[in-house]
């Protein structure tokens, strides 16, 4: 707890994964509940798509962002590993 750098959430991929899951789950909570009974209705289906698809895209974008964070943090150790390899 003493080191404040350990508390910056934005650089943590886990934070972004959790954010994506929370937003997707919260947004699709009602559409999924109503889906069983109303999926046959085209009007409902349109609305379902209108809500679900953007959330799905947003979730995947945030996942991608989280993965990028992971790659960024791993890059340093990979670079260190590269530096360790003796040059011919």
């Amino acid at each position: 707890m003493k080191d404040p750098t350990a508390l910056y959430l934005f650089s943590s991929p886990v934070f972004w994964v959790v954010v994506a899951i929370i937003i997707y789950s919260a947004g699709t909570f009602f559409p999924f509940i109503y889906a069983k009974n109303y999926m046959a209705e085209s009007e409902f289906f349109d609305l379902y798509d209108m809500i679900h698809d953007p959330l799905y895209i947003i979730r995947n974008l945030i996942f991608a962002f989280a993965m990028l964070q992971k790659t960024n943090s791993k890059k340093s150790s990979y670079m260190a590993y590269c530096k360790k390899i003796p040059k011919p």
Partner: peptide, 20 residues
């Protein structure tokens, strides 16, 4: 159906607002 649509819309908005 119309009431379900509005419930769906506002419910989703509410849930999203809560999550954010």
């Amino acid at each position: 159906l119309p009431s379900v649509s509005s419930a769906l819309f506002f419910g989703t908005m509410g849930m999203l607002a809560l999550a954010i």
